[in-house]
Simulated assay, not measured.
Amino acid sequence: MTPDREAHLVELVDGDGYPVGRATVDAAHRAPGMLHRAFSVLLADPEGRVLLQRRAAVKTRFPLRWGNACCGHPAPGQPVVEAANVRLGEELGMTPMPLTELGVYVYRAEDPVTARVEVEYDHVLLGHIAADRPMSPDPAEVDELRWVDLDELRARLDARPDDYAPWLSGVVAKLNLDSQRAL
């Protein structure tokens, strides 16, 4: 994440997701961390595969680990889907698209490399796209993209968890049977 993004404001929340304040991205991710609103976007193609991105080396949290298509933080009071579409544009060069919220995943994770902390009230969003949809990944955000079968991804998460962002298994778990059928 570029230094100017670290100065953006995030919405601090309580355990039920109600706003309780605001902090900069940088402050919210310093130990011990502050619970704040975030989102994780899963993109699925018609074959039931999900798009993974390998996070850029310059990311301040979990660089070079594989994660879902896009993550970010809405500004205080900003609708989550609106913020997610902005980040899809910034990270992957995509135009806005319909996204469905699958639920919330609350987690805490410490990055042993950067000493940053994630304490997030994470809204998990799902979008459907064709695998050949044009994308222009920003190299400051994304090192690599890959389409992966959902069952294969779950097996890889179990076998090599340190290759993946720590939130990915919880985000993928929000894909219930109804949303899997829609894949």
Rank of each mutant, 00 (worst) to 15 (best):
V10S: 00
H128Y: 09
T114R: 06
V41H: 05
E91F: 08
R116V: 04
L145R: 10
D122W: 04
D26H: 11
V124I: 04
S40H: 01
A23M: 05
L43I: 06
A31D: 02
D163L: 04
A130N: 13
E91Q: 13
W147C: 05
R30V: 06
Y164R: 00
D4M: 10
V86T: 14
R160Q: 15
E82R: 14
H29V: 05
F39I: 05
S179F: 03
A131W: 01
V171D: 14
D45T: 03
E101N: 13
V41T: 05
T60C: 12
Q180N: 10
P137G: 07
N68E: 15
D45F: 03
A83T: 06
P137H: 06
P3G: 06
H128A: 10
Y105W: 13
H73A: 09
V148M: 12
G48E: 04
A75D: 11
A69M: 04
Y164A: 03
P19G: 03
K59M: 13
E6S: 14
D162W: 06
R22G: 10
S136C: 10
R154L: 13
V58A: 08
G127T: 07
A7D: 14
R156P: 07
E82S: 11
Y121R: 06
A75V: 13
V80A: 02
R30N: 11
R160M: 09
G170L: 06
H123Q: 06
G127I: 04
R22Q: 15
P32G: 07
G33W: 02
L150A: 12
G89N: 11
V171L: 15
V142E: 00
K174T: 12
A23R: 02
S169W: 10
L145K: 10
P96H: 13
G72M: 11
P139E: 00
C71Q: 07
W147K: 05
A69V: 07
G89T: 14
R5D: 15
A84H: 00
V142R: 03
V104R: 02
A159F: 14
N176V: 14
V106H: 14
P32C: 05
V106S: 14
V113S: 11
G77A: 03
V13C: 12
V25W: 10
A155S: 15
R133I: 03
W66K: 06
M1Q: 12
A31T: 05
V113R: 14
T114P: 04
L102G: 13
A140N: 07
A155D: 15
E6R: 13
V81I: 10
T24P: 09
T60L: 13
L145I: 01
V50N: 01
R61L: 13
D132G: 07
K59H: 12
L125Y: 04
A31C: 01
A84Q: 02
T60N: 12
R55G: 02
V104H: 03
P74A: 09
R146T: 06
A7Q: 15
P137I: 09
P76T: 06
D132S: 08
A131E: 00
D143S: 12
D163G: 07
E90L: 08
R156T: 08
L52D: 03
A7T: 15
V113N: 10
E11P: 03
P139C: 02
E144G: 04
E91D: 13
R154P: 12
